[in-house]
Design a binder for these strands. Sequence first.
DNA 1: GCCTCCCGCCAGCTG
DNA 2: CAGCTGGCGGGAGGC
Length: 590
Amino acid sequence: MEEGYKENCGLNVNPMGTRSPPKQLTSATSVLGEIQLAATNLKTPTKPQEWNNADPWTPTANLKMLISAASPEIRNREREILEEQFSGDELEKVLPSRKEKSLGLLCHKFLARYPSYPNPAVNNSICLDEVAGELSVERRRIYDIVNVLESLHMVSRLAKNKYIWHGRLNLGKTFEALKKVGEGNQYGEQIQLLKKREQDEFDSQNSPNPETPKPLVKHPEVGFVELPGLEFRAASVNSRKEKSLRVMSQRFVMLFLVSAPRIVSLEVAAKILIGEDQLEDLDKSKFKTKIRRLYDIANVLTSLNLIKKVHVTEEKGRKPAFQWTGPESFSDDQDSENRSSPTALTPVAIDLRSPKENCAKNLFASGGKTFTRHQSLIKLAKSIENDRRKINSAPSSPIKTGDGSSSAASKMAQLAAICKKQLQQCRDQTKVKLKVSTCKVKSTLKQPGGSDKNQTPRCLSPTYCQAFPLLQPHPNTAPPYAVILQPPHTQTLSDVPPTLGYTNPSDLQAPSDGDDQSTQERGPKRQHETDRGCTSKRIKGSVVDDVTESALPVTPKGFHSLQENFFRTPGGMSCSPPESARKLDVGTDD
DNA sequence: GCCTCCCGCCAGCTG
DNA sequence: CAGCTGGCGGGAGGC
């Protein structure tokens, strides 16, 4: 059982003994206290802190070890406590499931900490240790996220353990650059070639045919695509550039940007990204590894609302794929428009001061009519902010939180849980209101930024507001509600008629066949499923069916859907759906 | 049984 | 040379 917690338990697992000196950590509580002191030290590294003199380590080393070790330690301790209190089935229910630990959810939490459009004039540095600690994950996982974000120039590496947050400021340029490189590398052609080859192979299965190797277009090795001013600052990154998740992530995005329709199957992506010139060389483990990495990348991109999971059914069967849900065009105008939007700007200045406050804001974008924050949430948010202050700011704030349970980490979990609950309730409302709101949505979508700005809830992006008329309480229905913490359960939008006005493919999912869970997966066995209840869309002989959201497997659909609106960038970033929808419907082949 | 992807080992590299 | 970084693949949860 403890297999997965090796790192958590054994701080000296690493045979090199490098970063994991044995250190007695008595309890989560004391660890938290130490973290807070340590984090204080982080802000003022030159100033000596109240370190235990007996400790032979330097404060910095101590600090780093503590931060990197503490969160696993806390989790481990929490787990032990749970194991003491529960057993068997109960324990299973209480322990975080695999899904709750997913990279997608983690990425959501990460993104929630920072504003989409930060003020570049302010210090937007990210300390990986700190983030890992606050999100209660190993730093390794943060790297996964940061690498993908870096590939989109949403962050850039400043120094060891330090990154700068750029948010979506550079996204437009990045996409533009990636698209150019993708086109230059003829990725579109390669995709077509691969598809054609598959088709041929399938055909030749029926009428055996001396296999004719059809080498793909040989493409020059694509290095990391940099933007002026955002070049890598550390050579370390360059050294592993070629194989890195960063490069892979960029290439993956390129595939979407150059393909039409903007759907790429994992298999095709893996094949192209492997950089193969001859598929014959494609050894299976390499392929599997590539697929694993693609899932990692896809999870992060999904959290960014740039792609979403779909399935395509082709001759060979039903295959996992991803559909681009990011912007269709990346003009700077859109970007600047977004940034200049009062609703977009307002939160930025505030957010920069406090990632966690920002997180709470993003999760509970309140202030509007849509969400009435329950008193407990306000307390929670305040409490989190207090924690943050203790950790981050005051060198003169030696106060320890006496109670380990108030750790930021567990609060994050609570926030997420509460958020889930809220989202579910919103969805309930949505189901009812979708029908009556259709026209409104349509008209709103036509005028980004809407004419209704006065009613725009603060802290919400314009897009959020565009999408959220759907969620606004109907005068005659649900009043502001209290949040009750309880395990979320899956709900679907399956009762939403497919003919409803289209807001966004991810806001209004293609209706599934009712059972959200069952529609999500499970490959080849379901090849025949195009005649299931679900709405499938044909693309050039392929069928895109059950547009699922398993790339954010953790949460009920509603959570994801709503979060998309929370995190979606304003304006141009989100108003593309009708276009892609059209493509889907008519099988456009540009 | 397959898809998905968490987890953490460990090597490369930097500061 | 401590420790940051991240490639990599085993293996397990979920369906």
